[in-house]
Structures are given as C-alpha cells and as structure tokens.
Design a protein around this nucleic acid. Structure first.
Length: 903
RNA sequence: GGGCGUAUAGCUCAGUGGUAGAGCACUGUAUUGACAUUGCAGGGGUCGGGAGUUCAACUCUCUCUACGCCCA
C-alpha cells in the first residue's frame, strides 16, 4: 500500500521522525560482521562548540560517503565524538565563575575540574544534537570523548612511550606565552597580525671613553619593544660591519639599569637596517635567544624581566629600578606601562634619538619614534599579544616523527586530495619545529611526570610506578601541567577503536581508516599530527586518503566571523529549506580546491528539487506506480521503457565514477539532471496515458533507483518517499542495496526515443518562434521517412500527439502551400500552415538556422581540407569532424530545400 | 620575501588539447489534476591581458595584472 502524499514537501514534518527511527533501530551501523569495512572518523568538534556552516559542509561530505558505502553493503563505521578543548572549555567555566564574582583559584584543582565535568554533563556537546538535524549517520552508540577513561589511558601511555623513545623531552627555551590565559601555546596557535606601531631609536653609551671610528661615544640601536631594554644582555653588530669592528668585544652601559653588556659580532645584525646595531634580549625574543646562545649565554642565565601576566619583575642581577616593578609590559586599559616609562626616562636622560619627518606642508617635526607597521603575534584564543617567555616545557621531537608521514605521502600510502595540498604539507613537515605540548591549565590530561626535590623527573603511567623508579622514601610531586588538546586528538583514528589494545575487534577491523575529510585549515593542527602519531604508534598511516575541503564564505566572499556579524547559521537554513536542500547545496558546490560562497538562492533551488521529486512520486502513486520488488530491471518491450533502463545504467556508471574520485559536485549534478530532466521531463511525459503493467513496473523500478542513488545526498525525502511508495517489509532505504542490475544501454531504443525527443523539441521551438499557440494540434507530412523515423512514428503515435502536438504524420507528399519545415534526426517533416503563419517569419527562422549550419559546415570543411589535421589529429577527432560535417551539410541541404518550397 | 590558489554568461560555479556548459537571474509563453517551489521556448560569453608550443589552446608553457590564503 502506498501512503498518500501531501501536495507540497514539508521537510520539517519528516526529518526528526526519520532520524529518530534510524537511530533507534541501530541503522547507522547495522550488524555486518562479514562485510568489508569502511571507516571514517569525524574531526571531533570542541565540546564547547555549536554547529557552524563549516561543520555543516564537513559533516555533509562525510555523511554522503558513509551512506554511499553503507548502501554498497560495506560495514560502514563513522566514528563520532568531541574533544575536551582544554583552553576553550576552561575559559567557558571560568567565565561562568566570573559572573558570580568567583574565580578558579578559589577552588582546589580537583574541585574546579569537577565543575568542568558538571558543565560538560549539562551543556557540553550541543553540537551532537545539531549534527543529528543535519542527518548525519554517525555511530552514536560508540560516541567518544577525549577525556573518556579509556582514551585518557591511551593518551598517558603515548606520553610515556614517546618519552621512553626519546621523542618527548623537557627543555628550557622560549615559548609562546599567552599572558592572559597564563599558559604556553604552540606556534600554530599564534596568529601574526600587522598592527600600527612605532620604532624607537636609542643611544647606548660606550663604556670607558671608547669611541666608534667616527668619534661617537655611543651606539645607536632601534626597537619596537623599548621595555625589553630592561633585560638587554648584549648589542649585536654584523661581523663584517667596519663601522663597529673596533668595538666588538667592548661594552656598553645600558641606560636606566646601568648594566654593562658586551658588543658581539653576529650575522643576525643586518648592516643595511637602521644603524646596523641591534639590542639583544635573549629572554624575550626568539631571534635574540639564538644570538644569545651563540654569544655564550646559557638559557638558564638569560635574564627574565616579566612574570606570567607580563608585568615587570626584578631580573636576576637586581638592576631593574623599583619604579618599574609591577608595571604591565605596555599600556593597557589606558594605564601606562613599562614601555611608556622607559621612553620617558630615556627621553629625560637624553638617550632617545628623535625621528625627524616632514608634514604635508613641508614643515619639519620631531617625533619620539618612527611610525611602522609591525607583524605582531597574537594568541588565537586569548587574543592578546604573545610574549616570548623563558620556561621549562615539554616538547615533542616533531622533526623525527615527520619523516614517516612524508614518506607515506611520497609512496602513495596516503593520498592527499586535492593533490595540490601536497606541497604545503611537505613544506610544513620539512620545516617543522619542536612541538610544545604542555599547557598551564587544569582541564585536560595531566602530564604523567613526577619530580623529586632535586628536580629529577620520573615519567610513568601511575604514581606508584614513578615512585618505584625514584626509589622508596623519595618525595615526589606531579607535574602541574596538562597536555595540548591536539596531542590527544591526534590519537583519534585509533584510540577511538580500542587502541592500545591491538587485539580490540574494532581496531583490528577498522584501522587504518579509509578516508579522512577535514577542512584545510586544520591540516597542520590535526591531520599532520594524526599522521605523525599514527605512524609512529601503530606503524601504519591512519587513513588511506585525506580529503581537504575549503571554507564556506559569506555571500560577498568574505570570511564569516562573529565580529563581522556575517555568520550564517546552518540550523536556520535547515529550518527554512530543509536539511536535504542544505546538504545538496554543500555537495553541489564542493568542487575540489575551492572555497564555497554561501548562496541562499541556490539552497532554495535544491529545496525546489526535493519538491519536484516529491511531486513526481505523488504522480506515480496516483497512477498505480509503486515500489518495485526486484533489484533487476523489469522486462521491457517498449522503446521508452528500454530507453529509461539504459539511462539509469548510464547514470549509475557516471555516479559511481564521480564518487570514486570524491567529486561531490559532479555526483550531485548527475543525479539531479537524471531525476529532473530525464525522468520527470521526458520519461514521465512519454508514458503519460499509457500505464500498462510493463510501464508501471519499469517506472516504479526507476523511481526506486533514483531514491537509492539520491539517498546519500538527500536522506530524509528519499527515505520518506521510499516508504510511501509501498510496504518495504522492514527494508528501509538507509540500509537498502545500491543499484545492481544486468541491463545496459539498448542502442535501438535509445535512437528511437532520441528521435522522438528531437522531433518534439523541434516542433515546440518552431511553434514558439512563429507564434503558433503551443497547444494547437497540427498534421505533418514525411514523404520518405528513414527506417528509424518510420518505426518511431508507427510505434509512438500517442506520444507524438501528446508531446509534439502532431495528430498525424502522413507518409505522402505534403500539399502545396506554406508549411513549417521541421527536422528530426536526418528526416524532414513538413507541417502545412496555410493561413496560420507569416511566411516571412518562417523564412527568417529557416535562414537563421541555415546560416548557422553553413558556417559550421564551412569551418569543418576547412579543417578537413587541412592535410596536417587529417594526418596528425587523433583518428577520433577526424571521425567526429567528418560526422559533424556530414550533419551540417545535410542541414544546409534540408534547409535550402525547405526555403525553396516556401518560394 | 617564499609557497599555493583563483580570474569562464548579470550572479554563483563546472569543464575537456577538437571550437563552451549548469543553477539562479532575465525575456517570451503556457494554467480543465504530479509539480507555478511548475512546464515550454529563448537571449546572453573575443573563457583577465600578452607571448609561445601545436594541424588545433578556455585547456599546456612563459609572462604581466588583479584578488585571496598560508608560511617567514
């Protein structure tokens, strides 16, 4: 029994119902113990996150692939879950405390972490509900969280193992320090922005009457960060710079602190830039750190002048004047900081070299500093300027781990799609820096390292093991820090499957994963690190293919951002147009290697497409066309039925090819055009009024094939229609079988139907151009029809009458007088129109067509007359040119004759 | 500074070494039952500029211009 359908498709009425049904019935991952596995893991969104348009794209693509593979009979597993998002989550909970005039440090670590868990239980993971609205068919029964006990266990084990392998180590060096969040972050979490700043020039006096060659008793240095002069430890000049050759090895006495620091020769100093001399602050600048090391300063001896909040503290040599202590590094919230005070003092003491410039009027003015654009590092979470800060942190030796993934990409074990990303991948991997993985947070995986009182470290899975290593009676204190969230999400492809238990059934069957789909924006953050960790820990590439998609941009092409207020909410689009339409939009717009511009009109167009299909199904139902019972195409005798079966076969072949290449846009367009153009506009029109048993069976079968092929893209409407078409005996579409049948293209049927279509189109076009009412029925004459035409006419008179509005085609000579000349295939039909049309209009129409064909024929003639072409071109190209030439020549003849007949 | 990408119809985008397509928009037209969230027909592009390779270039190479992204 079919279910009667409403006149208009209403997505909201069916989406939730079907999603619930699928999930409750366990249809996202049916038991298929013997089937070939197919595995995708989703990029775990932040537990604090909510669905944005980028998630919608990413997850739609994954769902299309997973539904496709599930339909193809595979044991398709889509792993889903969220990550604990160390900084983001801790910030959310701290903000909640702030609202109650409370703060984290009012609690013990354990109490605070418990509060985070409370938050997670209450409000975490809203995105998982939102992914359901998009129709994503993940295996929710195995939903994961990076802080789950088994996952945490894996993370600690990885830390311990990598430490034992010498791939994780503790080091004192400069890190990117976020003074707002008071934690180290990795270099990937730093975003460089150009901001307007200043370049100050100072005099550093030379000690003991030493002078430069030109007699000056000072060295000029320049800086964008004057406050750091409180911790300067040297002045560097280029070894080949003759201006300073005589003072290398001598000292300057710093203003304010009175510190005596050496002048060193180092290639870092660029003679072309400014004075050629640079101040060196090894404890607060990455370049200076290296210069300092070369100059013989050990990291432990490098001066530090800032605390964790970037307020000035006393340096080890005690030379910073009291008035600076406690000041913020620079002006903040309208309050002057160390920078401003340093400038003031230098100016007062005559050490500031003013910047002379001219106004627009040409008057000379004196400024404290030269205005400059400065590339400034900001923390991507906290949004404040990053401070290079000298601390002890844990590092991963990324350079060693990067070797295997690079080899995997080179030898094809990992295929990156689109391939153009390979270069970016290699460039980053080849220049990879040590990865700082410790974070000064409370929420996250606490580092399994214990220190004794003399600072010796013991790394172990548990305190007991660490104690055993340290020996009895030794007092141990656990490292306070937690691990970078990406360190744990890098284990996602295998730790979600039961690793490190290598015998875990899921791991055995579903690792390595088949495919990873992610935005290119996390290629380094996540994808590369997964590859590094995966290859080292499991010995295998975590996935065979890596598909990178672009960003979804606002309609004007700008990046979506909350601050710009141009964020499009995918849930709003779903409310408005339905999840199926949004999904289809994402698929149709996803051409490899390009960002997607948001276009509501296009989403609307795909909503219309769903409605079109809905109405086609409705039409089928009212004519007794119902669910088919076979995979095989029904037996067919009529040309139209044989033709449409062949068209399904062709569509299926093209669709499979597009899916194999992950060409989502091509796949979507193939099924779209088959459904709308071929099935709705031609097949249904051709069979109207002729619903014999064969036709009903074929039409029902074709509609079923459409529903299956379209299902990965539009799961809701297809499932609804599938079930409305008849009793499927507990055989839901989501777990149905992908089309599989023996029938192919029937060439005879194809030419016959194409002849019919050609005739119909030609008649419609001619009538339209001559202003004859489209509904008007006419008679035609075809004196000597080709065998194809004769058959087509004899077998399809009803369709010709209904579609082409030709009531009869006589195989006799057309009566004298004005007639419309219609071409169909190689045949010409004359349609007498005495008194109905303007003969001049018909002549004009034919002349226009004649000119087109004559031009084409002439051009092709020229090409075929070119010996070079005939000899050198591919035989197919020559053949095609010959055929085209024959066609156009025939058209010229036909149209000329037609014009002659008109007189 | 280095790398990558993009430039095709009014807009958003496909595209192949053999002479250019889709959706939307636009124009004309159609309404006694699948669908006006529709049907039918149509107009519209020297494929960013220039040079080269080739019998043939939107397609391959070089170069220029514009825009975007990443890294330093």
């Amino acid at each position: 029994m079919t279910t009667e359908l409403a006149k208009t498709f209403d997505p909201a009425a069916i989406e939730q119902r079907w999603y619930q049904h699928w999930e409750e019935q366990g249809l996202f991952r049916p038991e298929r113990p013997d089937a070939q596995p197919f595995t995708i893991v989703n990029p775990p969104p932040n537990v604090t996150g909510s669905l944005h348009i980028g998630h919608a794209l990413d997850n739609t693509l994954q769902d299309i692939v997973i539904r496709y593979e599930r339909l193809r009979g595979k044991d398709a597993l889509w792993v889903v879950g969220t990550d604990h998002a160390g900084i983001a989550t801790q910030m959310v909970v701290e903000r909640q405390l702030e609202e109650k005039q409370d703060k984290r440090t009012n609690y013990s670590r354990e109490e605070f972490v418990e509060k985070v868990w409370d938050w997670k239980r209450e409000s975490g993971g809203t995105i998982t509900t939102q992914l359901r609205r998009l129709g994503c068919s993940m295996d929710w029964s195995r939903e994961q969280f990076t802080m789950d006990p088994h996952f945490s266990e894996a993370v600690l084990k990885v830390f311990v193992d990598l430490y034992n392998d010498g791939l994780i180590y503790r080091d004192k060096r400069l890190v990117n320090w976020d003074p707002k969040l008071k934690t180290a972050i990795s270099d990937l979490e730093v975003e460089t922005q150009d901001i307007k700043g200043s370049f100050w020039h100072f005099k550093y006096p030379l000690e003991d009457g030493v002078t430069l060659a030109d007699g000056r008793d000072y060295i000029e240095v320049a800086t964008t960060r004057p406050e750091t002069m409180l911790a300067d430890m040297a002045v560097a000049v280029h070894p080949d710079d003759e201006r300073y050759a005589s003072v290398v090895g001598k000292h300057v006495v710093l203003p304010i602190t009175g510190r005596k620091v050496p002048i060193v020769a180092d290639e870092h100093a660029d003679p072309e830039l400014g004075s050629g001399a640079v101040k060196i602050t090894p404890g607060h600048d990455f370049n200076d750190f290296d210069v300092g090391k070369r100059a013989g300063f050990a990291p432990a001896d490098m001066l530090n002048m800032l605390d964790a909040e970037a307020n000035v503290c006393q340096t080890a040599d005690g030379l910073v004047p009291d008035e600076f202590l406690g000041l913020h590094r620079f002006k903040r919230d309208g309050v002057d900081g160390a920078r401003e005070l340093v400038i003031q003092r230098l100016k007062e003491q005559g050490y500031l070299i003013p910047h002379i410039t001219k106004t627009k009027k040409g008057e000379e003015v004196e400024l404290d500093a030269e205005p400059r654009t400065i590339a400034t590092p900001f923390g991507d979470r906290g949004g404040v300027v990053i401070e290079p800060w000298l601390t002890d942190q844990w590092y991963v030796d990324a350079a060693k781990l990067a070797v295997a993934p690079m080899e995997a990409v080179r030898n094809g074990d990992i295929e990156i799609i689109p391939q153009s990303w390979e270069k970016t991948f290699f460039h980053w991997m080849e220049n990879i820096q040590p990865w700082c993985i410790s974070r000064q947070l409370w929420w996250g995986h606490r580092i399994p390292a214990w220190f004794d009182e003399s600072g010796n470290v013991f790394v172990a899975m548990t305190e007991e093991e660490a104690q055993a290593k340290a020996g009895e009676g030794v007092t141990l204190k656990r490292d306070e820090d937690v691990l970078d969230t990406w360190f744990s999400s890098g284990l996602w492809p295998f730790a979600t499957l039961g690793w490190p238990d290598e015998n875990a059934p899921l791991y055995q069957k579903h690792y390595p994963n088949d495919l990873l789909i992610s935005g290119f924006d996390i290629l380094f953050f996540w994808d590369a690190r997964m590859a590094m960790q995966g290859m080292h820990l499991t010995g295998q590439a975590p996935w065979k293919r890596l598909y990178l998609h672009g960003l979804v941009r606002a309609a004007d092409g700008s990046k979506m951002s909350k601050s710009k207020g141009n964020v499009v909410d995918p849930l709003g689009l779903i409310d408005q147009y339905g999840a199926d339409a949004l999904r289809f939009f994402m698929a149709a717009m996803e051409s490899q290697g390009r960002d997607i511009k948001m276009d509501d009109e296009r989403v609307k167009g795909y909503r219309n497409f769903a409605t079109k299909l809905w109405n086609a199904a409705r039409f089928c139902q009212t004519n007794g066309i119902t669910a088919s019972a076979t995979m095989e195409a029904p037996e067919a005798t009529s040309a139209v039925n044989r033709w449409i079966i062949g068209e399904v076969a062709g569509t299926l072949t093209k669709l499979d090819a597009a899916m194999a290449d992950l060409r989502f846009d091509a796949a979507a367009n193939i099924i779209y055009h088959f459904t709308w153009d071929t099935f709705c506009d031609w097949y249904i029109e051709l069979i109207k009024g002729n619903f014999d048993e064969e036709t009903k069976a074929v039409a029902g079968w074709v509609l079923d094939q459409i529903l299956v092929m379209l299902h990965p893209f539009m799961p809701f409407v297809t499932e609804e229609l599938w079930n409305a078409q008849g009793d499927r005996a507990n055989y839901p579409l989501i777990t149905a079988k992908w089309p599989e049948f023996g029938a192919g293209v029937d060439a005879e049927a194809k030419s016959e139907v194409e002849w019919l279509i050609g005739l119909t189109s030609a008649v419609r076009a001619a009538k339209n151009e001559l202003g004859i009412p489209p509904g008007q029925k006419l008679e035609a004459y075809c004196e000597a029809p080709s065998p194809l035409a004769a058959d087509a006419i004899a077998r399809n008179s009803a369709a010709i009458e209904r579609l082409a509005r030709i009531s009869a085609i006589h195989t006799t000579h057309a009566p004298e007088g004005a007639a419309m000349q219609i071409g169909a295939g190689s045949d010409t039909l004359a349609i007498p129109l005495e008194g109905l049309i303007d003969i001049d209009a018909e002549k004009a129409r034919l002349t226009k067509a004649l000119e087109v064909s004559a031009k084409e024929a002439k051009s092709l003639e020229g090409r075929l007359g070119n010996a070079n072409f005939v000899e050198r071109a591919k035989p197919e190209a020559v053949e095609k040119a010959k055929a085209d030439h024959a066609h156009h020549s025939a058209e010229v003849e036909r149209l000329t004759a037609a014009l002659e007949r008109l007189g």
